[in-house]
Amino acid sequence: MMIKLEQLVPRPLKDRLSARPSDIWNTTLTLEPGNIVKIKAPSGSGKTTLIHIIYKLRQDYDGSVYFDERPLPAIVENELAIVRQTQMAVVFQDLRLFPNLTARENIDLKRILQTPLYDAEKIDEMAERLGVKHILEQQAGICSYGEQQRIAIIRSLIQPFSWLIMDEPFSHLDNNNTRLAASLIAEECKKRGAGLLVTDLDEDSNFDYTHRYQL
């Protein structure tokens, strides 16, 4: 799936953003399948806003977003659900896990929302690799933020997708855990030939980025 941004500007940030240059806002940008994209952005420059716009959680923007020539506002209800089930996986900055479900249930929910791509055993395998297997039966609400972050990453990887978008996915992980997570993510994206879009505050070399943008 191709993602195209056209003269995109979030309305609440309009004044602030018009004063400074950006590779994303107010320009036309096409993200091709298989691209590995890094968007570096200082705090308050609209990083989360961009993720939410692409994921269609907010519509308060000028300009347009297209998925494969299809304007985003035209994708609604069940079609939107299908996009989220099979085309676009996400890791939110605020993770958005169900605190009352166990870590495993949080991941499994995303696995079985559509025809499953992987068997249930894949959850254990991924959790093992990220060092969170021991907390799989714990309620997500009582896991540490770092653990929750890895659960959210596994949740995004358990579903089919052609784009994985991540908002500061490693903010609470140490270098070693970041490396493990990044390697799993890269592997899963490669397996699917999927695109990856990562936003972060600083430069990093977690992935072999094909494009780097400044927000």
Binding site: L57, E77, N78, A81, R84, R96, L109, K110, L113, Q159
Partner: peptide, 10 residues
């Protein structure tokens, strides 16, 4: 949150 994660209203 379910809808956000991709559960369809249907």
């Amino acid at each position: 949150l379910l809808v956000t994660l991709g559960a369809s209203p249907g």
